[in-house]
Design a protein around this nucleic acid. Sequence first.
DNA 1: CTTTAAGCGAGACGGTACGTCCGGTCTTCGT
DNA 2: ACGAAGACCGGACGTACCGTCTCGCTTAAAG
Lengths: 210, 210, 210, 210
Amino acid sequence: MTTQRKPLSTTTRRNEVSRRAILTAAFELVQEVGYARLSIEGIAARAGVGKQTIYRWWPSKGAVLFDAFLMLSERPDGEGSALPDTGDLEADLKTVLRATIEELNDPRYDEPMRALNTEITHDPALAALYAERLDGPMRELKKQRLRSAQRAGQLAGGLNLDVAVDMLWGPLLNRWLQRSGALTPDYADSIVETALNGLRPRREGLRSLP
Amino acid sequence: MTTQRKPLSTTTRRNEVSRRAILTAAFELVQEVGYARLSIEGIAARAGVGKQTIYRWWPSKGAVLFDAFLMLSERPDGEGSALPDTGDLEADLKTVLRATIEELNDPRYDEPMRALNTEITHDPALAALYAERLDGPMRELKKQRLRSAQRAGQLAGGLNLDVAVDMLWGPLLNRWLQRSGALTPDYADSIVETALNGLRPRREGLRSLP
Amino acid sequence: MTTQRKPLSTTTRRNEVSRRAILTAAFELVQEVGYARLSIEGIAARAGVGKQTIYRWWPSKGAVLFDAFLMLSERPDGEGSALPDTGDLEADLKTVLRATIEELNDPRYDEPMRALNTEITHDPALAALYAERLDGPMRELKKQRLRSAQRAGQLAGGLNLDVAVDMLWGPLLNRWLQRSGALTPDYADSIVETALNGLRPRREGLRSLP
Amino acid sequence: MTTQRKPLSTTTRRNEVSRRAILTAAFELVQEVGYARLSIEGIAARAGVGKQTIYRWWPSKGAVLFDAFLMLSERPDGEGSALPDTGDLEADLKTVLRATIEELNDPRYDEPMRALNTEITHDPALAALYAERLDGPMRELKKQRLRSAQRAGQLAGGLNLDVAVDMLWGPLLNRWLQRSGALTPDYADSIVETALNGLRPRREGLRSLP
DNA sequence: CTTTAAGCGAGACGGTACGTCCGGTCTTCGT
DNA sequence: ACGAAGACCGGACGTACCGTCTCGCTTAAAG
């Protein structure tokens, strides 16, 4: 896998054009034909590349897919733009979760992301890489926003932020993966509200106390 | 798929022995060799059955897997035993989530369940069946427990119970599928506590008000 | 290899159409593209057959080629027609050797026969089969003609007929395989004459003695 | 091919060490793994040489093999030592043919020679080169011995010596290539005797005539 | 005595074919 | 009539080599 590509030892004569062609082909193919019909041969053919060039640099179909996502996620120069922070945590979270839903519902990303999830679920090594390179950075942004809210006293002090992130995005992703219900903006709102307030009853009247 | 097996029209000359052998073989195979190496041929060979017998009765590998789970879930006579209801919602939920975690961590179920999830995520028809026959009944039990708590005033009145269930099990399943962290009993506890109380700070002192 | 095809055990459900298509395709292909470019994939494609069907029934490319020759050689119903026997041994042998030369020079047979020879030279098992099924019967016919001549007193009494056959056909085949010279009818004649008379001088005058 | 190596134009900066390493590797490899598994990559690897160095100087695998034989055959300083000439043609020929048989039966030469023959049979250009550089000189030696016998009246006057050589070595080589029988010293003797005397009966008694 | 250009080891590259596995379909036989 | 057995066409697997193509390095020649 192209994990340590940056240093690129002087003796590594890797063809960058082929690399990008392969990743692009993989991403496009999986979105066109679906995960089940995604084949290394197909990727090689579409990329105009020999199969060996894929096997030389990636250990599995999932690794190719992973790098394809990595390439996409690295598009922006400044890399990670922070999550919106208007001071209104609830509104900000709803914005972000609605955006997540939109992406999951986008036919351009739906199949590829399901494919990546499938590979991750069956390959711990890939999962570790995913945690480090893709999920990790994103999760850090989310935790930053939550930390900011915590400082503003909008979140419980002892809160485990990883659990908090799971509470917000877990339900969404699970509903998407298991197709256990429609992913609507309303659902995003419900998740945010319920997560913030908790399942227990809150004494609403007390909120306005001095 | 064996969806309408109950009526068993008189003309259905289906061999029940073969059926069970196939489902058992499928379940055992996937747990032994993993999802990627699970093949219809392998199932047929292990079940001592012709391939055609599988193709005759199931439309896909996922459908076989699904029926295998269905068979397992129907073992108990009384079918659906309700969730524990000691009156202490938090404790009951922790018990149940810890049990869920134990099952997901059980090597006998881990691979098969990942396989089923993979099939569901890539096959809407299977997902619908899953929602109806496997997830649905289980979700109903969960909601019953929550309704009971709601009646006891332990849950917010306007609560959408489906969202509540998602809030409790979603994070767990997502962490399991994406392998984004260890599934420990502590994690289950955290989820339950955070879900019940919400992410916002609670004025603890007020709880003791009349 | 299809060595014991005749009995065709009742459980062998071999597709005769595919078999003939494969053998025909192999023969035609080798004569069109040559031995070096002859591939199992090519044969399968031209025969409209899955590769596995070839690998199921033949252990090697050479074996397919061998069976292709076998099929061709079995065309005639009565199988083995004897060699011409006009009573004039020298004339008969020249006729037969000239025919052999014509066949070797025929572009339809040249490449295929070279290919078969190559396979035989590198595969003793195939060579044994060749000796038994193709070369053997032909050699028997040749020896029959020589035996007839021997009875007529036209050949030396203690002659080893296998050596005699080698003396007649060996030079020809060797010149053809090694391309060490043109295969002309005159060459056939020279071989026959020299083989019959020997390299030593004959006292011509003594021939007319009583 | 290294046909005109001797003049070695002043601009040819060819590495003689690599050249010998390649030829040696080729010869050893073919005798170890056989013709079918002989690959340019394998030769390059064993010779510790880049593939390009082979492709730069030889047009084909067969050409490398040919040069390997050429290198071996050039070992002796004086190049071509004549065939034995004791005056007894029959004995001399038996000696030489027995030596030929021994070489063909030698496992060190068997596979390589079969390989070379295979390349020759499928490549006319190589065959021409073979005729000129390897077979030619050897054949000339054989013909010299026969000419000497002819002068001594031991061979027929009008004899075509090329045919004579073919009559003696053709049967041998053909039996070897087609594996149609064991190559024993007795077989060599039979060939020599039969070739010299011819297949026809000889009036033995007349030999002692004045 | 530097330049400079070739030969060289190395090995990536686009390809072709290998021999195997499996997917789905179809056919034959035995129960 | 069903089911086991398995042949069949086809597609993909992961590997081995093909012949071409850079890359730096070494080395001999021409300036």
